[in-house]
Nucleic acid binder design. Structure first.
Length: 117
DNA sequence: CATCGAACCAACC
DNA sequence: GGTTGGTTCGATG
């Protein structure tokens, strides 16, 4: 089943990008500084594909408020960033995320940002 | 360890 | 209808 949204008036509609962007804003703001999570982990929570998460994050990066730079690839690779991968790397370093050979240390990755780390 | 290919899904053409 | 991403996972060398 595709992800559905219940609108006022009782109408069900398919979730669109705006819905995903909004949901992701809430989720990424739960990632503590110095930790990261993955596109796949967020995708699992939403029940969508990791690529869709990437596309949604690319759509509305409001980098100051919603720290989408804390979302990385499952192998620790940085993944993309609308303001540039170099900037993403710098932000992570500043927050104290360990970087080894172009990847974040897997230790920083929270696989479940809802459960207690 | 590196690369390959299929599956992912809303949006855009 | 086909392509495209801030990806992933299992299979293969």
């Amino acid at each position: 089943v595709p992800l559905l949204v219940l609108e006022e008036g009782g109408v069900l509609r398919r979730a669109n990008m705006r819905d995903y962007v909004e949901a992701l804003r809430i989720l990424v703001s739960l990632i503590p500084p110095g930790r990261t999570t993955t596109y796949g982990a967020l995708a699992g929570l939403l029940g969508v594909s990791p690529r869709l998460v990437g596309r949604a994050l690319a759509l509305n990066p409001d980098p100051i408020i919603y720290p989408c730079h804390r979302v990385v690839r499952s192998d620790g690779g940085l993944g993309g960033y609308s303001l540039g991968a170099a900037f993403k790397r710098r932000l992570l370093e500043v927050e104290g995320v360990r970087l080894e050979g172009g990847r974040v240390s897997l230790e920083s990755i929270l696989d479940d940002i809802l459960g207690d780390p």
